[in-house]
């Protein structure tokens, strides 16, 4: 019986992983311009960025997902549950990543910027060769922690019909009435998936530490 339950729930794993990965990529990418806006010369742009970030982080993910799926989806666009979830989680991730980047930038010693300027490096090279690698090194631990949080947040997408782990768990529990086992297994599955993520993050951190000293 337990094996059947496990198989049923495990069918959701690819969806969970896909959603987490897509949201992470969208967020890591969009977070950069959003963070850059925070340092703009124009106060209106700075204010807009802060407002967007604060808003994305102050409204629960489920509201964003409902808003996109039921709101946009019911009239304006044809949008699949996965697309809505990826968009919603991606935007929230972007806001959080912008904050992580900002923290990482602040942590880089000001002397680094000065040295790069003094060496007359082009802005492109300044960023790619000097600031970028250090930014990555400092942002990684927070980013990894956030990614594991995102893995768990992906469960919320079950409420709009994405066939990931939590969705499979719900329907399996409705089918079999072995709810205790079902949800225990589902919870365990999330914990198990997060373990290699944490190990990978630590491994990358060690590699980066070796290449980029603080």
């Amino acid at each position: 019986m337990t094996l059947d339950i496990l198989q049923a729930i495990a069918a959701g794993i690819p969806w969970t992983l896909a959603l987490t990965a897509v949201a992470l990529v969208i967020g890591a990418a969009l977070g950069q311009p959003l963070c850059a806006m925070r340092f703009s010369r124009w106060s209106a742009v700075r204010f807009l960025a802060s407002a967007l970030i604060l808003t994305f982080r102050s409204i629960p993910p489920i509201v964003w997902l409902f808003f996109i799926f039921f709101g946009f989806g019911s009239g304006y666009l044809q949008i699949s549950p996965f697309q809505a979830a990826a968009a919603g989680l991606g935007l929230i991730t972007a806001a959080n990543m912008a904050e992580i980047y900002r923290g990482a930038l602040a942590a880089i010693h000001p002397g680094q910027w000065e040295a790069a300027f003094a060496l007359n490096l082009l802005p492109r090279h300044r960023f790619l060769d000097v600031i970028g690698p250090q930014l990555l090194r400092v942002a990684l631990p927070s980013g990894a922690t956030y990614a594991i949080g995102l893995l768990k947040d992906s469960a919320i997408s079950s409420t709009i019909g994405v066939s990931e782990i939590a969705f499979q768990a719900y329907h399996t529990s409705q089918r079999t009435f072995h709810s205790l086992d079902v949800y225990a297994i589902a919870g365990l599955l999330y914990i198990l998936i997060s373990l290699p993520m944490a190990s990978l993050a630590r491994w990358i951190d060690i590699k980066l530490r070796a290449r980029v000293a603080r």
Partner: peptide, 10 residues
């Protein structure tokens, strides 16, 4: 480690 949603449903 478990999503809050799962804890709630559990």
């Amino acid at each position: 480690g478990a999503p809050a949603l799962i804890l709630l449903q559990f």
